[in-house]
C-alpha cells in the first residue's frame, strides 16, 4: 500500500504559497493512494504552465511535455500500454486554448485517461494574461480595458464532444476533489475533471473567497449525472451558483477496448519480430 507521503518526490514545489495547485497535488496523491495503485504503473503527463510541474512532485512515472499537447501524449502512452494509469495535468490555456482541438478529440476518442484541468482563468506562469476561461470584462495585462470575449464553457463542450465522465472540483475542497479524481481514474474511458484553482498572484477576482460563496455540491442537490439533459443544464450554470461534483457520466467502450491490437495484451509487451513475407507476397 502506498501512502500519499510515499508519493512525495524529492522535488519541492515552487508554486506560490497559497496557490490552488498545492491542494490539487495533495488530492491527486491521495486518490492514487486511495486506489492502491502501484507508483510504477502510474504516469502523470503534463503540458506547459504551473499545472505542468505536477509530475515532478509525485513519485510515479511522468512526462512533462509541451504546451497543449498533454492529451495526445497521454493517449499514446495509454494505448501503448493499457496496464498503466495515465493522468494528464493541464491548465486552462493548455487544454482549452492551444490544446482545445486535442481536448475535443480526446473526449470523443474516449481513451481511458483522466484529464485534470487546473483552471485558474488566467495565464499565471507568463505573468498574467487573459485565458480562454476568463470571464467577459476580466482585466489582465493583455486586456487592460477588460476582456471583450466571453469565456469558453468546458463542461458543456466536453459533453458535446462525447465525453463519458465530466466533473468539476474545487481546490478549496481537497477532500471532495480527492474523491472526484479517484472516481475519474476508476471510470472506464476519458474522464474530465475541471478544477477551479484560484491563482493567488494574478487573479484577484476569482479568489478562494469568490468561489466559496458560489460553489455547491451536486450530490447535495440530488443531481442525477446519468441524465444528460439535466447534466447539460448544470454544465451551463456559471455565475452566482457554480456546481461541483460529477455533472455527467455515461458508459461507452473506451478506445482501448476497440483497438484490435490491444486484445492480445499491452502493445509494448508484444514481440517485435514479425514475418513480413506474406505481406511481400501481395506485391508480385
Amino acid at each position: 500500500m502506498t501512502t500519499p507521503e510515499e508519493l512525495r518526490s524529492t522535488v519541492i514545489p515552487d508554486w506560490c504559497p497559497g496557490c490552488g495547485n498545492h491542494a490539487i497535488l495533495m488530492s491527486v496523491k491521495g486518490a492514487i493512494a486511495d486506489l492502491g495503485l502501484d507508483p510504477k504503473d502510474v504516469v502523470l503527463v503534463s503540458g506547459i504552465g504551473c499545472s505542468a510541474k505536477t509530475p515532478h512532485y509525485v513519485k510515479t512515472y511522468g512526462f512533462h511535455a509541451i504546451h497543449g499537447r498533454a492529451l495526445p501524449v497521454a493517449s499514446g502512452i495509454r494505448l501503448a500500454n493499457h496496464q498503466l494509469t495515465v493522468i494528464a495535468h493541464c491548465g486552462d490555456g493548455d487544454c482549452y486554448g492551444i490544446g482545445m482541438e486535442h481536448f475535443i478529440h480526446a473526449m470523443r476518442r474516449n481513451v481511458n485517461i483522466t484529464v485534470l484541468v487546473h483552471n485558474n482563468q488566467i495565464y499565471g506562469l507568463t505573468t498574467g494574461q487573459t485565458s480562454p476561461t476568463s470571464d467577459f470584462g476580466f482585466k489582465t495585462k493583455s486586456t487592460p480595458g477588460g476582456s471583450i470575449e466571453r469565456g469558453v464553457m468546458p463542461l458543456i463542450l466536453a459533453i458535446g464532444s462525447g465525453a463519458t465522465f465530466v466533473a468539476r472540483g474545487f481546490a478549496g475542497n481537497p477532500k471532495h476533489l480527492r474523491g472526484l479524481i479517484a472516481e475519474g481514474i476508476t471510470h472506464k474511458g476519458a474522464s474530465l475533471i475541471d478544477i477551479l484553482q484560484p491563482c493567488v498572484t494574478f487573479n484577484h477576482v476569482n479568489t478562494f473567497a469568490w468561489y466559496r460563496e458560489r460553489v455547491y455540491d451536486l450530490k447535495d442537490a440530488g443531481h442525477d449525472p446519468t441524465d444528460r439533459a439535466r447534466a447539460m443544464e448544470k454544465a451551463l450554470e456559471w455565475g452566482d451558483r457554480i456546481p461541483t461534483g460529477v455533472i455527467y457520466r455515461t458508459e461507452r467502450p473506451p478506445l482501448d477496448d476497440l483497438v484490435p491490437a490491444l486484445a492480445q495484451g499491452p502493445l509494448v509487451k508484444q514481440p517485435l519480430e514479425r514475418d513480413i513475407r506474406p505481406l511481400m507476397e501481395r506485391f508480385y
Binding site: V45, P72, S75, A80, P260, A261, Q270
Partner: peptide, 29 residues
Amino acid sequence: EKATGIVVRQTEDEIAAGTMAIGASYAGA
C-alpha cells in the same frame, strides 16, 4: 492493422499524430 498487430490511429492533426506517437514510444512501442 489486424494482420500485423500494430496500432494505427488517424488523429485530429499532425501535431497530435506526432505527439501521440511520442507518448507511445516513451511507453516502449
